[in-house]
């Protein structure tokens, strides 16, 4: 009886730990995208600015995924023989959009405006990490192929921290009304 209780307790505790480890450290790992797109190649090797593709980032709340047309604009000429580019071409020819998988998910009740942050000259890397080093987009630092702590947890405390302290870098002080709930919630 006593032993059974012990086993049960151990099982419950470790179950919770395992569950939470997954939730905290592994839930945001880099998903496999339909096309093996590399930010490293685009942003680092070819130093294409972010806003060249994410054209709405300074105009709207959402940054926007580049349209297939945009991809084809370059890849009609460049590296047309690569198998990944062939995939893009096939999407283009099928007249289908590419179903990218979203990595930076915010809950429905969060209002986040890319425009405001871009206009306050917050560099994209501040939240999205150094995408120029990522072959596959991820929210985690990868050490020896194992996804580790998150670059951006997208948790409220993380947002608040920047609104209170981090913002000094960009606007010389905390965000005005930056801790008002309805600044970020809707």
């Amino acid at each position: 009886m006593k032993r059974f209780l012990l086993y049960l307790t151990v099982a419950i505790i470790t179950f919770t730990i395992g569950y939470n480890i997954n939730l905290i450290y592994f839930s945001d790992r880099a998903p496999e995208q339909p096309i093996n797109f590399s930010h490293k190649v685009h942003a680092a090797d070819n130093s294409i600015p972010c806003l060249y593709c994410h054209i709405y980032a300074d105009k709207s709340t959402i940054s926007g995924v580049p349209s297939v047309q945009k991809c084809m604009g370059c890849h009609k000429i460049i590296k047309t023989d690569s198998p990944e580019i062939q995939k893009v071409v096939s999407y283009w020819e099928k007249k289908e959009p590419i179903p990218w998988i979203k990595v930076y998910n915010l809950p429905d009740y969060v209002y986040f405006s890319h425009k405001r942050h871009v206009k306050a000259s917050v560099p994209c890397q501040r939240c999205h990490g150094d995408v120029a080093k990522m072959d596959r987009i991820t929210r985690q630092t990868v050490i020896f192929g194992v996804p580790f702590l998150r670059v951006s947890p997208l948790k409220m405390g993380w947002c608040l921290d920047c609104h209170k302290n981090g913002a000094k870098e960009f606007i010389g002080g905390p965000v005005r009304n930056g801790t008002d709930c309805w600044t970020c919630h809707k």
């Binding site: 297939v68 047309q69 007249k95 990595v103």
Partner: peptide, 9 residues
């Protein structure tokens, strides 16, 4: 995972 569907054009 949520999908990000871009415009074709």
């Amino acid at each position: 995972p949520a999908r990000l569907i871009p415009y074709l054009i």
